[in-house]
Design a protein around this nucleic acid. Structure first.
Lengths: 256, 256
DNA sequence: GAGTGGTCTAGACCACGAC
DNA sequence: TCGTGGTCTAGACCACTCA
């Protein structure tokens, strides 16, 4: 073991102490931590040495701070594994679904899982034109969707269809979210078969908006995705799918 | 445009100003930023308001700080795209290579790209036993490899083979890194054909060591990977492949 | 109104790098 | 020796939440 406490900066000692107490369960899940002033008193440091310690724990996803209330121990995030086999399952779901699907019964247990949807029409900017391999300015439908699990936003997706393709169809209505088979289901209902999905994964600090919506100080995973049909035409672009990286795993599977 | 400067916290204003000057090229790549004290004077704030601003820019990967020297504008990281088609190319390379390959000629232009390699023997801990689907304690060969591009460490990989499989072979020697066809090449040389690769991607703050080696304050991408042969046996585990997320894109391709 | 975290100031001392 | 960033202190005011 490295000789712990001494000669370490004060804020690291504070962070280590608090982290140890959280890990040991002394500060249980949901517990309100002592206030910054009280931590400072208890550990004989100034409040300005407590704050960077809490910054560290926030970035590690161990605690969440609410202004005016205090800092709380976060529940350990269950490892939410997102499998890219999802796309194969989506394709299978699409193939056996009649679109548009009957409206879901008003099941209140589903409410906390319902997404927020905003559909708008926009011209393709340079980046989208490149991803779609179409001229800049081509009309697109933009879909901004906030996905929730148990009421907690976990994913913010901004995706695009060619406006020509979806205009006047069920896909152009907010009722098309959530859709059986996801985007692949949408396209299936338009007689477009997705044959290739190309996701590109990066990680970056969240924008201010994303941090607020996803309630995270951690970096986010940002996925840019293209969907292609059998002729190689790009039929959907997601730029970007933003996921709080806390407790999320993206699983791929490559057959050789 | 959102009304920029006013009513924003001072440190955000400072960060925005510096970011704008970097983006505009006023502070060119490699430039030494004004010292914290001088930025404070110039913007009429205290040094303690400049520091969080620089924290933001560091986390965005825009600047790098060296104690005693100052803060410098980092070169824009070229988007290094890592394609998972690499595995298919590796398989093709392995199939046409005779192992062990002839030692590379002493080509000094390659030196800055040579990896650091440490091979050790370890018993499987609980996590590795689970990933390999073998009993805890099974002897493994552990490979710790630091990959470099132009002398800069970009990736730290810790991977494992079953010791029984590699002991006494070329794969058990440091000369086996770098290998044509990577891990797939190693296994091919042992008459083991990799049929499936299963990478799981997460993002997390770097450990102190990783931050030092990869010279980054950004979160890192951490990939845990299994390689399986035709019978479904796990023949290699990487836990973890750690990549500085700055400017890195992981590209996958899924055929439906 | 009392307590919380968010922000800010004006100082200070230190280890380190460059000269 | 001097300037740099790293750390730390002791204050202060604010907006916010909650009783």
């Amino acid at each position: 073991m490295p000789q712990a406490d001494s000669d370490q900066p004060a804020y690291v000692r504070v962070a280590d102490t608090l982290r140890r107490e959280i890990r040991a369960g002394i500060l249980g899940v949901g517990t309100l931590l002592p206030s910054e002033v009280n931590i400072a008193k208890a550990m004989n440091v100034s409040r300005n040495s407590v704050r960077p310690a809490l910054d560290i724990l926030r970035r590690e996803g161990l605690v969440r701070t609410e202004v005016g209330r205090g800092t709380f121990v976060r529940p350990p995030v269950p490892a939410r594994r997102i499998s890219m086999n999802q796309y194969r399952e989506d394709a299978a779901t699409a193939a056996r679904t009649t679109y548009p699907p009957p409206p879901a019964a008003a099941d209140s247990t589903l409410a906390p899982h319902l997404p927020t949807v905003e559909l708008t029409e926009v011209p393709a900017d340079a980046g989208l034109a490149d991803l779609f391999r179409i001229p800049e300015g081509t009309p697109l439908q933009r879909r901004y969707v906030i996905h929730r699990v148990n009421g907690t936003p976990v994913q913010v997706t901004t995706s695009y269809y060619l406006l020509d393709m979806v205009q006047g169809t069920w896909v152009a209505t907010p009722e098309s979210e959530p859709s059986p088979g996801g985007a692949i289901g949408h396209l299936w209902s338009l007689d477009v078969q997705v044959k290739k999905v190309r996701p590109v994964v990066t990680s970056r600090p969240p924008t201010t908006d994303e941090a607020a919506v996803l309630r995270t100080e951690r970096d986010v995973l940002a996925i840019t995705r293209q969907m292609l049909d059998g002729s190689g035409r790009v039929v959907e672009v997601a730029r970007e799918i933003v996921i709080s990286s806390a407790g999320v795993e993206l699983e791929y599977e490559i057959d050789l």
